[in-house]
Design a protein around this nucleic acid. Structure first.
Lengths: 324, 324
DNA sequence: TTGTATGCGTTATCAT
DNA sequence: ATGATAACGCATACAA
């Protein structure tokens, strides 16, 4: 109810002085500051944030678009973003999409409406050309390995990493390799599939359609993979799995079914999250946390220069353990 | 970049006319409306929502505080809220707290800052007296069975419902009854515990400390309960379980361990969510969805009259199936 | 160090 | 039906 003018009046100062106190600006005498703080307390005043945002022309809030925070990959990524955001005293506004496009548009519309200053897409479902329409509404950063030069992006080179995984399995004598990915439509998954088909072809290895398994996101999905395996006519001898969670589930189910790992099937996954160490899963380390903090850094750069659109590729590394 | 003034200028009308078009107000001639819409499209204009909110003095957004949406109880509750919110074209802003108090304060501070118009607490962790400080910052609604007259609240009478459950078990010949609750500190859990101790005492039944089990929220927690049971010196013959999820987990684990339900242990739970029907669990139906929509209705009433603070109690009902 | 005046982008009141 | 213009609550350039 009370506003800055009211505070000024009761404290016997001008509104600018009140504003200075509110924002910790210098050049305000101790006694006036005292008086202002006192009446602020008395009137139980707090600023109207809409007015602050309108006046400032910015909100210091950035949206983070992700399918869910309830997954190690995204929670680590978010943590990385958050660590950097706090340094720039920026609030994060989460948009949990569950891969639904409408939720992504919700974030974009808030950007247009100046409710948030920018967006970091930890995952994207909407088509790129629609995203492009929001290019001038505020800094947008992508966390995917996509071929475009409009927005800055942070990711690892999924084709190279996937290649490394395939080569490692092949070097171990495997030629019947299945792969488990997340949403098959996603940019990253697409790259991985292409790499897979190409590599297998180059090595003269046949590929069975059944060997490309999608919608593998959480630990429970590992069970699904095992069931598929059990019913396959052409059984693979190795699995290249998109993330540690699924690999963990797969291995657990394999053991239940008397399938030895790596005796009967080898399992190689991605991420190097805690569960992979716990279960001695051979995996390709992805610096998820750094992916997040670099994404926020890119956001800052982009907001300083709307032309900035660098594609940053982070390093990956094979961690040799016991599942291959 | 472009604002309403710019649109007005280019369309050859006044800002008021533009505003009228924007808000679908009557009394604007078709040709002017056309002209305005045309230049809006041309300039790719969309309103600055901060300014809209500031000018209107409200946002049409209300916060919903809950620990997680990833639980049937809260997702049904949320659905109920959402159904009603959409009728009042109100946006919901989710605050997923994970029971952390700071997150609840975040919501409250946004309320003070006029970023949201009100808050519905689907669950509350902060002390009541701290909540009270925000009483005049906007309508607040609680979904708990608490003894207070400051805010409207919607819930079922947990003491009565729990009593009904206990009496049913007792009527079936049980005198060694264990209970499984969520956060033991919560208002609802407190009521349930009191009811339990009183009832058991009145019937001359002893209570073992081990028989009060907390932190039972999700299906996995049922496993924990079974482990506890297996290690108890004084084994109960019946479980009164705070929600269907935990009951489902408990029964599943019981079967794995060769414990018959209801042969060796009886299980009675709350909610009547789909899983209870699927598993033929005897349960006490709670109208979770209606709890949500009534909560939003109470929010509306409260925003029309800041004195409104009715405590609404919804009915519950025992659904007799096969687990007792 | 302090205050005045203007602007931020809307909505809404009041004329016309 | 349309248009000035005054709010809304704050930040800030400029003057003092």
């Amino acid at each position: 109810m009370a506003n800055i003018r009211e505070i000024a009046r009761q404290a016997g100062v001008s509104v600018s002085t009140v504003s200075r106190v509110l924002n910790n600006h210098p050049y305000v005498s101790p006694d006036k500051r005292e008086a202002v703080l006192k009446t602020i307390k008395e009137l139980d005043y707090s600023p109207n944030i809409n007015a602050v945002h309108l006046s400032r022309g910015k909100t210091n809030m950035v949206g983070v678009v992700l399918p869910t925070i309830n997954h190690p990959y995204f929670s680590e990524l978010l943590e990385g973003i958050a660590e950097e955001a706090i340094k720039h005293n920026t609030q994060l506004v989460l948009f949990q999409t569950g891969y639904r496009e409408e939720k992504e548009f919700e974030a974009l519309e808030q950007l247009r409406g100046h409710l948030i200053d920018g967006i970091i897409f930890a995952s994207r479902a909407i088509p790129f050309n629609l995203l492009l329409k929001y290019k001038n509404d505020g800094p947008i950063v992508l966390c995917e390995d996509c071929d475009q030069d409009e927005f800055p992006s942070i990711s690892i080179k999924h084709d190279e990493a996937f290649n490394m995984g395939l080569e490692y399995l092949i070097s171990k004598g495997h030629d019947r390799i299945a792969i488990c990915l997340g949403r098959l439509e996603g940019t990253n998954s697409q790259k991985r599939q292409k790499t897979y088909l190409k590599k297998m072809d180059m090595n003269g290895h046949d590929v069975d359609d059944e060997w490309i398994i999608g919608d593998c996101l959480v630990i429970q999905d590992g069970k699904k993979v095992m069931n598929r395996y059990l019913n396959m006519k052409e059984k693979p001898t190795a699995f290249l799995v998109g993330n540690d969670q699924v690999a963990a589930g797969l291995i657990t189910e394999a053991i239940k079914n008397g399938i030895a790992v790596p005796g009967n099937i080898a399992v190689l996954s991605f991420d190097n999250h805690p569960i992979s160490e716990m279960m001695a899963i051979t995996t390709i380390d992805i610096p998820t946390n750094q992916l997040g903090s670099d994404a926020f850094k890119a956001y800052i750069k982009r907001s300083e220069n709307n032309e900035y659109a660098q594609k940053v590729s982070l390093p990956f590394q094979l961690i040799n353990r016991k599942s291959v």
